[in-house]
């Protein structure tokens, strides 16, 4: 039935009507996605629903484009990342000068113009994608690892351990993540990618810990977990083999929605001057530079800003569709 919707040309974000959607969703809920042959049908249905969702297709395409750009930045970018030309050149303009060092005058095209140092803006944005992707993936992986461990242990053992770990999470919750990240940068003392990753990664731990703990609490008393316990399976094995795989859907959704937040956080830190070192090409630094030259060169801030927007939008759309497909009930994920 989903094929009808893909061909109907409806641009509505909700391709299915609510009743039908609820019916499908209920079916997914009843068959929990654990690894076994009989569940292959569930995966296929989830895949079909994602493929029939235009929002998901758009999001996934843009995400892939972004990853592709970051990976092949040196091949995509027309010039070297710190090659300099005429400064503050308008979009679609040319620099003239001897840039190859062969004694002849070259004519160099700048599709998006140049920045105040004379860097080709398009080149800087393409290389900026690398930092964004690198920081986003590592911070989310870090926060996922630590946060999931905390949530698993707290939820599984309960009692004093739970109380202590959750007090820590409560404590971290008192900090908006950018403030916490900024504070950690102050503590780590110094700029650079590693510090940015640690700062943002730590700041995101509580989101995963809360989510996973909640899932564990609901899974802990399921029959298969009780059964595993009854036959003497070790706690560690129950946590990693029985509980975690059953909480995988909300975790994946959470990760997809945390990546754009990490991208924004990195851009914000760089914008504030608390991020990577000033010569590194990042979107946040370009925006800061663009703010400085707002009266002379609007393009320095507008294009990197649009880059952030498109990538974040893509991840948000894809994550939202995943959430629908997995039917994960959760509150709005957003910067706090």
């Amino acid at each position: 039935m989903s094929n009808d919707h893909t061909t109907s040309g409806r641009s509505d974000s909700d391709a299915l009507d609510p009743d039908e959607r609820e019916r499908i969703a209920r079916r997914y809920r009843d068959e929990s996605p654990v690894e076994s042959t009989e569940n292959r049908g569930v995966y296929r249905r989830i895949r079909d629903q994602i493929l029939s969702d235009k929002k998901a297709i758009f999001g996934a395409t843009m995400v892939l484009l972004f990853v592709f750009t970051a990976m092949f930045a040196p091949m995509i970018a027309p010039y070297e990342q710190d090659e300099t030309f005429g400064i503050n050149q308008e979009p679609n303009s040319y620099s003239e000068g001897d840039y190859t060092g062969n004694g002849e005058i070259d004519r160099v095209w700048h599709v998006l113009g140049t920045d105040s140092f004379g860097h080709d803006l398009f080149t800087r944005i393409v290389f900026g994608a690398r930092i964004s992707l690198l920081v986003a993936l590592t911070t989310v992986a870090f926060a996922f690892t630590v946060g999931t461990a905390i949530g698993l242990i707290a939820g599984y053992y309960g009692g004093l351990i739970d109380e202590l770990l959750m007090r820590y999470v409560d404590f971290q919750w008192a900090f908006p993540s950018i403030i916490l990240a900024a504070g950690l940068i102050a503590f780590l003392g110094g700029l650079g990618v590693t510090n940015v990753v640690i700062a943002i990664g730590v700041a995101f731990i509580d989101d995963f810990a809360r989510l996973v703990r909640g899932e564990v609490l609901s899974i802990r008393e399921e029959e298969y977990v009780l059964a595993a316990r009854a036959i003497g399976t070790s706690d560690r094995r129950i946590m990693t083999k029985e509980i975690l795989p059953n909480a995988v859907a909300p975790i994946i959704v959470q990760m997809t929605l945390m990546i754009p937040l990490a991208i924004i956080a990195e851009a914000a830190l760089s914008f504030l001057g608390l991020g990577v070192k000033p010569t590194t090409p990042t979107w946040g630094l370009l925006l800061a530079e663009g703010r400085q030259y707002i009266n002379q060169a609007w393009w320095i801030s507008v294009f990197p800003g649009l880059a952030i927007m498109v990538v974040v939008l893509a991840f948000n759309m894809f994550g939202d569709s995943l959430r629908d497909a997995f039917d994960v009930k959760q509150s709005e994920v957003s910067e706090k």
Binding site: A268, F271, L287, R291, S301, V302, G305, M309, V312, L313
Partner: peptide
């Protein structure tokens, strides 16, 4: 969706 995807400082700029 667009509002969610724009950092406040970009909107400001």
């Amino acid at each position: 969706f667009l509002g969610l995807s724009m950092p406040a400082f970009f909107i400001g700029i």
